[in-house]
Design a protein around this nucleic acid. Structure first.
Length: 271
DNA sequence: AGTGAGGCCTGAAAGC
DNA sequence: TGCTTTCAGGCCTCAC
């Protein structure tokens, strides 16, 4: 599912858990993408959530016991806040029970997500964090940075936007929307992008993601924020999932690029 | 070192 | 209607 706006929306919803005391942690499925560390039960008993944070598409939950959990939602993962009386659903893999009878549930049908756990101090040096490029919403994302990263690249810009090691947080939906917004062809190689295009691209990244967050992310399958409300940005899609639709008499095309769907308007996004 | 295919899973939708 | 195939908000690993 989730790209930066959906993860950001989840984190906002999870903030109501701050201050709650844990009384039990339970693993119902041992292995998602990776095996859930058994040591995660160390957070049990009177440890409180003190902060929740987003890094790229990862969610970090920090506990007063100086332990932290990392959650990655993969393609189909979702965090739900429910009452402990709620019946456990299919694909509910991991649950934190709180003393006020609320529970935090990770549901992930495809199991492409994962959960990690360690001391707060140590968690930030995980490989999957250290390799990340600048966050798509960071003020540090500027022309210099992008130019240095891609001015020699033979890779099409669509693929570059999906590379979390260059800019982190953008996924397939928003890569399509961002390229349309900046009127850049998804096939243009990094080295062929003009400075004025990079300027537009950076503006579009921020504009599209900020707007998507404002709408609570996109719900195209079953994505919902932690309180169950549905994101609404999909009604603002210009190109994603819009094959054959027209934008001022120009049709939107779909092609498969590196195994992912690319939607674009050839007349408005020329190479 | 950089690049691109394959694989990990399940379920909904499309195709026949 | 029912069976089969395709496709999906991600990302790691492994050949080249």
């Amino acid at each position: 599912m989730p790209e930066l706006p959906e993860v950001e929306t989840s984190v906002k919803g999870l903030n109501i858990l701050i201050g709650l005391k844990v009384y039990k942690v339970k693993i119902y499925t041992k292995k998602l993408r990776y095996i859930i560390p058994k040591s995660i039960i160390k957070i049990q008993k009177d440890s409180k959530i003190i902060n929740i944070q987003r890094i790229a598409k990862y969610i970090l939950i920090h506990f007063s016991s100086n332990f932290s959990i990392v959650v990655h939602l993969g393609m189909s993962g979702r965090l739900k806040i429910q009452s402990e009386l709620t019946k456990r659903n299919k694909h509910d893999h991991f649950i934190i029970y709180f003393k006020n009878s609320k529970i935090l549930v990770l549901n992930d049908p495809r199991k492409f997500g994962f959960i990690d756990f360690d001391h707060t101090k140590k968690i930030y040096s995980r490989k999957y964090f250290t390799v990340l490029g600048i966050d798509a919403l960071s003020k540090k994302l500027n022309i210099n940075y992008i130019y240095n990263k891609i001015s020699k690249s033979e890779v099409p810009i669509k693929q570059i936007l999906l590379n979390q090691h260059i800019v982190s947080g953008i996924g397939n939906i928003y890569a399509n929307e961002i390229l349309f917004d900046s009127r850049i062809s998804p096939f243009t190689k990094g080295k062929n992008l003009k400075i004025y295009q990079l300027t537009r691209l950076i503006k579009s990244i921020r504009k599209i993601l900020v707007k998507a967050i404002k709408y609570g992310g996109s719900t195209i399958r079953d994505y919902a924020s932690s309180d169950g409300t549905l994101g609404n940005f999909q009604s603002n899609f210009f190109v994603y999932n819009k094959e054959g639709k027209k934008i001022s008499k120009f049709a939107i095309k779909k092609v498969i690029q590196y195994g992912r769907s690319t939607y674009y308007c050839p007349e408005l996004q020329k190479e």
